[in-house]
């Protein structure tokens, strides 16, 4: 199949890559750029394990063609903290509140929570539960994820994701 050239800025780094028109963004991120944090859990846009941030919105990257992301600014879990710097408040909070177990949903959950806190800086429990309802977790029962997001919202450095 004929490939096309797509430009992406991922975690602040610019890439020009050749993709088939049908290639999904999750596959480009995972297999071409080797950013394997985001995962594939369902193929039908239900589970949210593939969630990344595209142009300031949470996107399930299994349902976006890479071609559609041409020119986009993308942030993945690997870009949540500065390389070598302290972890993002959400990353600390998920660990401190035991907001993860198998870790498979975690990168998508973190990226959704990151965007949610930009949308609603101090969300109440209901807003968090609705806000992450596109991301499934099979292990935690969500209770500690909710606590983690609440705790991160109150941390001082919450807005300080790595500058891109």
């Amino acid at each position: 199949m004929v490939k096309m050239i797509v430009s992406l800025t991922v975690n602040g780094e610019e890439h020009e890559i050749a993709v088939e028109p049908r290639e999904l963004l999750i596959h480009t991120l995972r297999e071409q750029l080797r950013l394997t944090g985001a995962h594939i859990g369902c193929d039908t846009t239900h589970c949210g394990a593939c969630t990344v941030d595209v142009n300031g919105q949470s996107v399930k990257s299994c349902t976006m063609f890479t071609a559609q992301a041409d020119g986009a600014e993308i942030r993945t879990v690997e870009g949540l903290a500065k390389p070598g710097g302290p972890l993002h408040a959400l990353q600390d909070a998920f660990r401190n509140e035991h907001g993860l177990q198998c870790g498979f949903c975690t990168p998508g959950m973190l990226m959704r929570a990151y965007r949610l806190l930009q949308e609603i800086p101090d969300p109440n429990e209901d807003q968090i539960r609705w806000g992450i309802s596109g991301n499934l977790c099979r292990c935690t029962g969500y209770q500690n994820i909710v606590k983690a997001i609440q705790s991160a919202a109150h941390a001082e450095h919450v807005a300080e994701a790595a500058e891109l």
């Binding site: 394997t36 594939i40 879990v77 870790g103």
Partner: peptide, 10 residues
């Protein structure tokens, strides 16, 4: 896991 550095089979 919180840094996207897990190593799953895929």
């Amino acid at each position: 896991f919180t840094q996207g550095r897990g190593n799953y089979v895929d």
